[in-house]
Nucleic acid binder design. Structure first.
Length: 434
RNA sequence: GACCCCGUCGUCUAGCCUGGUCCAGGACAAGAGCUUUUCAAGCUCUCGACACGGGUUCAAAUCCCGUCGGGGUCACCA
């Protein structure tokens, strides 16, 4: 049975690169009907933090990567010592006391040989281990080193496929030597290309947000982020780009993953997010929006007109790049003190439109039905009477009502704003009032 | 520096393994237009790449070699 693992170190948040590694492991496990195992590499007591463990686990859950087993390296120290002892007894390792350190370290005698690694993605990679110096297995404070703990864990938890970042290629010969020395069978390896930042080099905080939780906070949908990550170094074929995870499980094949490092492109992620957002169930979208709106005091969750809120969400849905665009763009529906963008006011509300606005209000008052079609009919009629272009009045009215030059169709805006609020906002620009 | 990995439009990629159907296809971005009530969406179009040089071959993006370029690793970090 296929058993893969994702082994983050809780010294920081789960980032884009880690998430992609987790995704490919998870996909492989699901595709093969195997197990996806999580291993928390918390041997570094100083840098590992519980908050990061929580953060990583939450991000993984949010992305939908459910795991079948979880291990903590900090709870397995006796296992590492046991295996180190074996190597000591076999004469494959020795102890050494460094002058400036308290205890003794266990060090692996690295055999000098040529070693060939079969990589599922890259094929055969050959190394000459004579340039590798003896490796510390157990540090003088008793904690295992990364390479040692990694090998012992992968072997004792029956990992069949090690799918990890490219940056581990040079660890592979060291680990292979340890497998041999310990008498373990070598798993299969697949080294994923790294994800680079737009400026070249590894994706880093300088280049933009790297933590998955940041993307969540910024209003990205987990499906969109996963879909985007999926397209980095892998393609489902047939020019498919938007693909749901179930379909991806069917099509995924590690051996078809690219060898080339991919650059993280926020613009494409944004496009992807919009694609998912406009097809998202409005009810669900409303659910995620409610806490955000409550936080801004835009709504009172105790007396919420949900149906009304859902219609507002639908109004903006095809335009959203991120979820958080909604509170920013739809603010005028929720606040009584309308903020008018200075630029917008300058552009469309400098001329005196008292007469036009007054007549529009009269039209609205005369409407038999206050619905979108009637509002538009009334508006068109007025424009005809005034003998002006529609847009000559549409733009100023939009700014007066929303404070912005961009937004949904004006007649929908008026309908959902309601007659009273519409009149009130227009009358502000009428000299001498209504 | 040594060792290892990689090199198709600005970016993500298809094609490469199994040479010809590729004067290289799709997507994002950019630009133009349609629609129009702004923006977004949608639709149409444009721009744009096989890193370079040698081979092999009737034929190379595809196979081989070299060069150059990019990246990674060289810790008692993980």
């Amino acid at each position: 049975m296929v058993r893969v693992r994702f082994a983050p170190s809780p010294t920081g948040a789960l980032h884009i690169g880690g998430a992609r590694t987790a995704l490919f492991n998870w996909l492989y496990a699901r595709a093969k009907g195997g197990k996806f195992i999580l291993r928390i590499e918390d041997t570094d007591k100083l840098r590992s933090k519980q908050e990061f463990v929580d953060e990583i686990l939450n991000s993984l859950k949010w992305l939908g990567f459910n795991w079948d087993e979880i291990y903590y390296q900090s709870k397995r120290f006796s296992i590492y010592h046991e295996h180190a002892q074996r190597l000591l007894q076999d004469g494959k390792a020795y102890k050494e006391k460094a002058p400036d350190r308290p205890g003794e370290a266990v060090i692996f005698k690295v055999p000098q040989q040529k070693i060939k690694i079969q990589d599922l993605i890259r094929g055969e990679i050959e190394f000459d281990t004579s340039i590798i110096k003896d490796q510390v297995l157990i540090k003088s404070d008793g904690t295992p080193t990364y390479n040692f703990a990694c090998v012992v864990d992968d072997a004792t938890t029956d990992i069949t496929h090690v799918i990890r970042g490219d940056d581990h290629i040079s660890n592979t010969p060291k680990q292979a030597l340890l497998y041999e020395a310990l008498g373990f069978t070598l798993p299969k390896f697949a080294h994923l290309p790294l994800i680079m930042g737009m400026e070249g080099g590894r994706l880093s905080k300088r280049t933009g947000a790297t933590a998955i939780s940041d993307y969540r906070r910024m209003g990205y949908l987990p499906q969109a982020l996963v879909n985007y990550l999926l397209l980095l170094s892998w393609a489902p074929g047939d020019n498919i780009e938007i693909i749901d995870i179930k379909e991806a499980i069917k099509l995924f094949d590690v051996t078809q993953v690219n060898k080339t490092a991919a650059t993280f492109d926020l613009k494409k992620l944004n496009w992807m997010n919009n694609q998912y957002l406009k097809n998202e169930d409005p009810e669900k979208l409303t659910d995620t929006l409610v806490p955000l709106l409550a936080e801004k005091n835009y709504i009172d969750t105790n007396r919420l007109d949900r149906e009304y809120l859902v219609s507002l969400v639908k109004l903006f849905q095809p335009r959203l790049t991120t979820i958080t665009d909604f509170p920013d763009w739809a603010d005028f529906f929720f606040v009584e003190e309308l903020k008018i963008e200075p630029e917008a006011q300058k552009k469309f509300l400098t001329d005196d439109l008292s007469a036009e606005f007054r007549q529009f209000i009269e039209k609205l008052d005369k409407l038999e039905k206050f619905d979108i079609l009637s509002i538009e009919a009334g508006f068109r009629e007025l424009v005809r009477e005034l003998n002006i272009e529609s847009k000559a009045l549409i733009h100023p009215v939009r700014v007066a009502l929303t404070g912005k030059t961009v937004g949904p169709g004006l007649f929908e805006v008026i309908y959902y704003l309601g007659k009273e609020r519409t009149k009130k906002r227009l009358s502000r620009w009428i000299k001498g009032g209504i």
